[in-house]
Design a protein around this nucleic acid. Sequence first.
DNA 1: GCGAGATCCATACCAAAGGATGAGATCCGG
DNA 2: CCGGATCTCATCCTTTGGTATGGATCTCGC
Lengths: 160, 160
Amino acid sequence: MNASAELRRSGFRATVVLYGLALAALVFILKYVEYRFLIRDLSVEVYIGVVAVLFTALGIWVGSKLLAEKKNVVPAEPPHLLDEEALRLPAGQAGSLGISARELEVLRSMANGHSNQEIADKLFISLATVKSHSSNLFGKLEVRSRTQAVLKAKAVGVIP
Amino acid sequence: MNASAELRRSGFRATVVLYGLALAALVFILKYVEYRFLIRDLSVEVYIGVVAVLFTALGIWVGSKLLAEKKNVVPAEPPHLLDEEALRLPAGQAGSLGISARELEVLRSMANGHSNQEIADKLFISLATVKSHSSNLFGKLEVRSRTQAVLKAKAVGVIP
DNA sequence: GCGAGATCCATACCAAAGGATGAGATCCGG
DNA sequence: CCGGATCTCATCCTTTGGTATGGATCTCGC
């Protein structure tokens, strides 16, 4: 039940190629028919109809391909940016990525599932400050959300 | 937008009806465009191109629906899973917490740091549906945020 | 067939998160 | 002493997340 997920793996390129080839073939056939049988003598409607049928068939075929592939797919989540690239350390910054002590505290709280407000209360600072820290944190971790931040922090060992 | 999802489940009769309606709609649109913008001034190739795209989309739509029919039975289990995983991953609300297969997919995506919108795109469903699933998920996991959901899900072993 | 569960979707609404900018206070090494 | 880093906070604004409600299909088991 996850077509795009499957596509990201291996079937994507192949599918695109096949689709492109099929498309090219169809166009070729159309042009051939057009000049071969002087399609101009026929009404445009007929021509359109042929095209419609052909491309509908193509669409069904492609759709079949897509769904056929995902039938054997493990419901597992395909590794995305966080699991592959993003988790790789930028080849610098040994352990800490320039994360300050306070930021680390915020990060830890964040990793425990606390909201910004809860973190603020726990650290006796204002919500604005927590936001400030977390925002800087996201920049240093190169992520865009707290969930990603927690994942990456754990991945790079900043957080247990 | 989410064509495949839209048709995921519907009977054969419904499929035929929908197809007919879609076809009629397309024809209507084509004729409308034809007379409205004097399509004749454009090259036939352009016209054909539009038709091709539209009907290819239609085909994919229908194809997806047809293929999705028999896919509903089993969400496709992976070839080899560890016994432990196999016991807690089975689709359907097995031992876990009454978490359904679809909810589990959302949960997994969530655990990889994806936003609701990204999850929606990946699963070919709307944002509203993702929100619906995640909301139910939070209830079953007894949490109030996605970060907590991921933590608890991992703690309970629902996800690795 | 009918009810229960699952999936899907929409809309409205409120809360939270995140981004951008600016700024005052403190501390510390050069 | 000065500049930089850190910590703090505020304000405005946009996006995202989460809840609630309700409705539509479709599947499956009784």
